[in-house]
Design a binder for these strands. Structure first.
Length: 272
DNA sequence: ATTATTGTTGGTAG
DNA sequence: TCTACCAACAATAA
């Protein structure tokens, strides 16, 4: 599911369902999701608490509780949250997706006299729900979030200059450099900026840096808008190997970079 | 049967 | 300490 835009989409939905809600019951259906915390500790820590805010940084979510403790959520590759109204549970014909067999953690919450369930679903189980009294390293080590914090060109230039060997795409996906960029957003932004993904990060100049920052905003906001409008994301390069480039018509190509598949346009994405 | 998939982490080696 | 590389985690879909 998730890179920055998808996680932001999830955050907005979760906030609608859970902000100001009181957690009255927690069922950990798969203990792997909350490790290293013991399930009983996780349940005790959350039960009876009210969720005061839900924030996002990069691909991480932070739920703050009314006792100032927190729950950090990472959706891994296939995690998401479902909202289940009480009426749905009493009606066997209600629209409950078949994927609910991958239900991993269930929260029963009360908000404005309504009692609903929020369900964490994750087929592949690479996601995590972490209870902590304080911020965790995975959260504090994140670089600036392009949506929440904006992109500081000087800071980004300094980070890129240090990476002599690594490609621009690999560095974009380093969560301590910019938070929230994954394989799709990296590929899309480099296409928009007209930069070959293999180019050494340290070679970028000011003009391309400005282009890249704008390209990141472009792909993030576009993907976010599509999610809000329930539209499929029409990516320009991701998943389009051997199809024509929508900018110049050349045939898109694919190769592996840092263990990840990368699609790009050999004609209009130039080396730095 | 084989290969690929929107991600992170922990080990190793340099 | 920092950087680079790789296997592991798990369930589908083509």
């Amino acid at each position: 599911m998730p890179e920055l835009p998808e996680v932001e989409h999830v955050r907005r939905r979760l906030a609608r369902w859970m902000k100001g809600a009181r957690i009255v019951r927690v069922d950990v259906l798969d203990t792997r999701m909350v490790r290293p915390t013991k399930p009983a500790v996780f349940v005790d820590a959350l039960t009876g608490r009210t969720v005061t805010s839900i924030e996002r940084r990069g691909k991480w979510l932070r739920l703050r509780l009314d006792d100032d403790h927190r729950v950090f959520a990472h959706l891994g590759m296939t995690g998401w949250f479902e909202h289940e109204r009480a009426a749905d549970r009493s009606n066997p014909h209600a629209a409950v997706g078949h994927h609910l067999r991958f239900e991993r953690v269930r929260f029963v919450v009360t908000k404005r006299a309504k009692r609903d369930a929020i369900v964490y679903v994750d087929p592949r189980r690479w996601g995590r729900l972490i209870f902590s009294r304080d911020d965790i390293a995975s959260w504090t080590d994140l670089g600036p979030d392009p949506l929440a914090d904006g992109i500081d060109l000087d800071a980004l230039a300094a980070r890129l200059a240090r990476r002599k060997r690594a490609s621009i795409k690999e560095v974009l996906m380093d969560q301590t450099v910019i938070a929230g960029i994954g394989n799709i957003q990296a590929a899309e932004s480099l296409w928009k900026a007209g930069i070959d993904p293999r180019s050494p990060a340290s070679r970028i100049g000011r003009a391309d840096l400005v282009k890249l920052a704008a390209a990141l905003r472009w792909t993030i906001e576009r993907t976010l808008k599509d999610l809000a409008g329930h539209a499929k994301s029409p990516f320009r390069v991701y998943g389009r190997n051997r199809l024509p480039c929508s900018r110049c018509g050349a045939t898109l190509e694919r190769f592996e970079l840092g263990g990840r598949t990368t699609t790009y346009c050999p004609a209009c994405q130039r080396p730095l």
